[in-house]
């Protein structure tokens, strides 16, 4: 009897050793191209030590809540969560706190007051305001790094006439990026006239339609198009192409900025397709949201948390013991 017991015990031990720790990765919506890429990067960064199980929230907090409830009830030690609604995170944190489950949030930042509820919650992301500051730098470069502005001030009035393509009204990133890009330019001494703000919900198609309207209203007055993200920037370029801009006269697949008609459009995110369009001269520049770096930070943090090690050993700077901010990079064709 005792021998059988020992044997069983050994099997259990072996079984435990053989089975890798499973970590649920909850993505708010796999239909989102950016998150789809991001998920692949996290999976890629994850070594053989863990099994990442990706769960699609289908852009429904109800679905994500149910998943989180199940995972927490099944006593998983760590969840990596890209929340659908960052305002609902309060309940997720409270629930995790009760069961002692650790959580890494990413991409969508919970409210600071919610993050303060529980020690073992972390956030890996990029500061929306920072992306806007870098976007402003790109615009400054465009105008010659001089508040007096260069030849891109087409009407020569010393004021940048800009249209802004804004993400969802009330969306944290949309609000922050819209506000900060203008603020940064102003603080640097540039005069900015926002001709109009087109609300396009971060969506390429919506942005194209919004841009159609903006061109109709403001036409040649537009000196720069500032977009809260690349998708909307690409939509804007499409619209502009229809209206006689970005005409590839020599059919080389590229826009020659000296000989062909174009308008500077600046995005944020650094999508692959956006990078291509920067290369070919359609998109002026973008702010690269370093999701590769972010994915690596998430995986490293997950490793430390699962193994119960000190998070201060992390290869990334950790702010307030909870926040890992990943820097953006400026991408232009210059």
């Amino acid at each position: 009897m005792r021998k059988i017991g020992l044997l069983l015990f050994a099997f259990v031990l072996l079984g435990c050793e053989a089975k890798k720790v499973e970590i649920p990765l909850l993505i708010y919506d796999m239909q989102d191209a950016y998150m789809f890429d991001f998920e692949e990067k996290i999976q890629g960064a994850m070594g053989d030590d863990f099994v990442l199980t990706t769960v699609d929230g289908q852009n429904s907090q109800i679905i994500q809540n149910e998943d989180i409830d199940n995972w927490i009830n099944e006593k998983f030690p760590l969840l990596i969560v890209n929340p659908v609604d960052r305002l609902s995170v309060y309940s997720i944190i409270e629930k995790a706190k009760k069961s002692g489950t650790k959580i890494i949030f990413f991409n969508r930042e919970p409210l600071a007051q919610d993050m303060a509820l529980y020690d073992s919650v972390y956030y890996v992301g990029a500061d929306a305001a920072e992306s806007a500051r870098i976007q402003a730098q790109i615009i400054m470069e465009l105008f010659g790094n001089n508040p007096q502005l260069n030849e891109f001030d087409k009407n020569g009035d010393g004021i940048i006439q800009a249209v802004i393509l804004k993400g969802e009204q009330g969306h944290q990133d949309a609000e922050a990026r819209t506000k900060v890009v203008v603020e940064t330019l102003s603080e640097a001494g540039y005069k900015v006239e926002v001709l109009d703000i087109g609300i396009a919900n971060f969506d390429r198609q919506t942005a194209k339609i919004a841009m159609d309207g903006l061109i109709a209203t403001h036409g040649k007055n537009i000196e720069v198009v500032i977009s809260n993200n690349d998708a909307m920037a690409l939509g804007a370029i499409e619209s502009l192409s229809d209206k006689g801009y970005f005409v590839d006269t020599n059919k080389d697949g590229k826009i020659d900025r000296t000989s062909e008609v174009w308008i500077p459009v600046v995005g944020i995110d650094g999508l692959d397709i956006a990078m291509e369009q920067i290369e070919s001269g359609f998109l002026y520049g973008t702010v690269f949201n370093d999701s590769q770096n972010m994915a690596e930070a998430i995986v490293e943090l997950a490793n430390l948390l699962i193994n119960g090690e000190d998070v201060s050993d992390l290869g990334f700077t950790i702010t307030n013991g909870k926040y890992i901010w990943i820097s953006y990079k400026k991408i232009t064709n210059q």
């Binding site: 907090q61 809540n65 609604d85 305002l87 609902s88 309060y90």
Partner: peptide, 11 residues
């Protein structure tokens, strides 16, 4: 069943 209501911070 307790759930969150999106965007409202209500349960």
């Amino acid at each position: 069943n307790v759930n969150t209501i999106k965007y409202t911070r209500w349960n």
